[in-house]
Amino acid sequence: MTTKLLIAGFGGQGVLFIGKFLAYAGLIEDREVCWMPSYGPEVRGGTSNCGVTLSDEPIGSPVVDHPDILIALNLPSLDKFEGAVEKDGSIYIDSSLIERKIEREDVKAFYIPATKLARVTGLSANMIMLGYLLKTSNVMPYELAEKVIEKIVPPTKQHLIAGNLKGIEYGYNYCE
């Protein structure tokens, strides 16, 4: 099975980190993994995106033209990539930053006000979104989250592990 994900938003929202998390999960599960960032002249506040492919077979193109799952963290990203999502795919939307609903009827939509929830709880929006993704998709097992975070957070930033895990847990348990 192959799953192609595209995570897109503003620089600084943690787009690349979500991608990195999923890539490391794939590594731990001994799957084929490819993580491809957009590396244009992006700056904080500008647009940023990253494609992740998880597969049980060797991965061809690392470029995610047509994602199975789109995580849109801002409106420009939804506008740009909504049409590219595979039929029967999923779109995850931060509904506190994107007011509109999706236009397509052949994909599933998941709305979560991640940024608003983050502000209220003091947790980070990208981790809340990630937890929600783990709850509502079969991208990777939720039980792996702790192992992944421990692997991905550098030794100098170990104090951030607990907060990130709480964010994932909050998103996982989120009900509308």
Binding site: K20, A23, G26, L27, V33, W35, M36, P37, I59, P62
Partner: peptide
Amino acid sequence: DGTLGQMMEP
């Protein structure tokens, strides 16, 4: 090329 330089794989 730029993709191979920037992408991560195991």
